[in-house]
């Protein structure tokens, strides 16, 4: 350890290079990750959207933030999957028996998740533009959106690390993300919460997806974000810290 500290960036570069090759050579995973959110987006815009009253005239604008969160929710399951394979195939053991900075092994996977989810998000935004999404947001607002999404991805990725390290099967490694796909439905991602029964409404208005969706929506619409952005950031950071600590605890027990 003591002598390997100065190799952090070199090792990180190698790990990241490996992961990026994985992404570029399995573009089908990007397609798999984006196809369901895009399908949802089309379904909601062209089938349900006409009947949904959101108080805005452009339903794609209303919908897009929730769709992006959904894509990230399914995208991170690939991190769990890749980690699981590395554990299974002894690649972790090979790396850990080498004089490298150990933390780069996990961080490589986490940064990969950021990159691949960024690609998915761009693909989805392009499709949204085609079907009528318009934004008056300036460069700062877009940067803020990117920042929130990146933080959200990081938080969920560290959650995904846990099943990736502990799962006994491939299915187990990715099954954890299903609840994440449903969370947007019980939020203001697709419809305003005002028509929901009180108990569900209370849940919907106080769960992270709603705060994040509202913050992104306001940013993209070029409106003031008010409190939402702080609530959204607090959720993302809170989940990130708890998930990171838990994941590192599991990592130390399982692999180090």
């Amino acid at each position: 350890m003591e002598m390997t500290k100065n190799y952090f960036f070199s090792d990180m570069g190698v790990m990241l290079g490996r992961s990026l090759r994985h992404i570029l050579r399995s573009m089908d995973t990007i397609i798999t990750v984006t196809i369901i959110p895009i399908g949802m987006m089309l379904l909601f815009v062209y089938v349900f959207g006409g009947a949904i009253q959101t108080g805005t005239d452009n339903y794609v604008n209303y919908l897009l933030p929730g769709i992006l969160l959904m894509a990230i929710g399914s995208g991170i399951s690939y991190t769990a999957f890749r980690l699981f394979l590395d554990m299974q195939r002894g690649i972790f053991e090979r790396f850990h028996s080498m004089p490298i900075v150990r933390s780069t092994v996990l961080w490589g996977h986490v940064l990969t998740s950021l990159v691949s989810n960024a690609i998915s998000a761009i693909v989805i935004i392009l499709v949204a533009l085609v079907i009528g999404f318009r934004s008056s947001a300036g460069i700062l607002a877009w940067l803020a959106v990117a920042g929130i999404l990146a933080l959200f991805t990081l938080a969920l990725t560290w959650i995904a690390v846990i099943p990736g390290l502990t799962a006994k099967s491939v299915d187990g490694a990715s099954a954890f993300s299903y609840p994440l796909l449903f969370l947007p439905f019980i939020s203001s991602a697709f419809v305003p919460t005002t028509t929901m029964p009180p108990a569900i409404r209370a849940f919907a208005e106080n769960q992270p997806v709603t705060a994040i969706v509202e913050a992104i929506r306001s940013l993209l619409a070029g409106q003031s974000v008010g409190n939402d952005i702080w609530v959204a950031l607090a959720w993302c950071l809170g989940i990130l810290i708890v998930a990171y600590i838990s994941a590192m605890w599991v990592y130390k027990r399982k692999a180090a």
């Binding site: 002598m3 090759r21 994985h22 195939r89 690649i91 053991e93 080498m98 004089p99």
Partner: peptide, 22 residues
């Protein structure tokens, strides 16, 4: 002194630890 040990050794584990995609 795990760092020094790792400098001195090389491990070929029970499962072939190669990256399939590369």
């Amino acid at each position: 002194k795990p760092g020094n040990v790792r400098q001195s050794i090389s491990l070929t584990g029970q499962f072939t630890a190669v990256d399939e995609i590369m």
